[in-house]
Design a protein around this nucleic acid. Sequence first.
DNA 1: TGCTGTACCGACCGGTTGGTATGTATAATA
DNA 2: TATTATACATACCAACCGGTCGGTACAGCA
Lengths: 214, 214
Amino acid sequence: MAKTMVRRRGRDPDVTRDKLLKAAFKEIYRRGFQAASLDTILAKAGVTKGALYHHFPDKASLGYAVVDEVVKGFLLERWGVLEPPSGDPVTTLQGILRRRAASLTAREVELGCPLNNLAQEMSPLDQRFRRGVNATFDIWTDAVAKDLATGQAEGTVRKDVHPRKIAAFVVASIEGSFGLAKGAQSAAMLRSNLEVLSSFLESLRPTKSKRRGR
Amino acid sequence: MAKTMVRRRGRDPDVTRDKLLKAAFKEIYRRGFQAASLDTILAKAGVTKGALYHHFPDKASLGYAVVDEVVKGFLLERWGVLEPPSGDPVTTLQGILRRRAASLTAREVELGCPLNNLAQEMSPLDQRFRRGVNATFDIWTDAVAKDLATGQAEGTVRKDVHPRKIAAFVVASIEGSFGLAKGAQSAAMLRSNLEVLSSFLESLRPTKSKRRGR
DNA sequence: TGCTGTACCGACCGGTTGGTATGTATAATA
DNA sequence: TATTATACATACCAACCGGTCGGTACAGCA
């Protein structure tokens, strides 16, 4: 009740911060972090420079916050990392791939994966960016690896696969596919690559022929 | 003889242009194209602004030239695209992967693939960059696809694989692997991913068991 | 020898950048 | 109600950016 009170002007720090984060994300997604203009972000957010520098000490910190509070959730949600595992991991992963392929937007094909963009641009230039971005990639990879390991325990995944290795490869292939498709501006290429990855996942299932008993 | 004459000062346009290209490549590789400073490039090349703008109409054109005349050759050479195909394509590709994994430099792991960097940064911002970068990716993909098709004709590659689809996936996986490894700053991760890719390639060979006839 | 075009030099320019300093209205507290 | 801290607003700044422009040095040709 006290929180929802009158609120003259835009004077709500949480809302202001959020507008900043959203606008910054869009601008960074479009032009990259270094080329992103604070004035543009400010104009888009409808906020002044004073407000920005009240909430963040500098441009870099705004970027870190965008990674931690916008991009991270965005990615984890889109790749089903937040959902609890169900059924065998190969089928689950293939389902995610299929759904992502079906729901691609033109903007996604044009601009690629926001997390990967930041990773490529900023990793060599700023350790904190690198760590922030990488932490998210690790969460994703770990989730996939864990699913695969569970699948092995349940007999839906071959015993000779190394879960972490395969998980890292899956993530790399996905990001690489987005990257190539972004260069080629081709949703078809992206879908095709995701299909090939899906067939690769298929090969992780145990071979049914022969050796029934042990 | 006339060409090798006295040459007072640095007054040799080809040499000057080359210094510009080399210095620009390094600076762009380090910081990205947009963040690359002409003054830094000039200082590194030991050339003045007048010389730069004599050889190139603007910064973008310098960038295009770097792609066409430096990065393209660099990449095609490193991935064996220029070498004539020999033996079965799977073994050849695996060999290239192994050699690349063995010869990785710290700088490569830190900065990633120069062509992919440019592709990710500039594709959405500049059509000419996009086309230039993409032309090289196409040459690479085509070469792999052609090898695979030849392999199919010679019986060393399964008939049910779609050469271009697989080739695109291979290139995407390689670039994705470099990208992830760059973020993680891990040569080990890169090597591991290339190994997984190698095992994927293995699966493209015809299955020897059963159906001997036909 | 004089002329012309190429290759280069470097001072300078307007615009944009991230960042700061000062001021002020509002909300919380005493 | 007085005081203080928060949450902005705005004017301003030095540094740097890509790009321009007038001048110069030299090479080849008439």
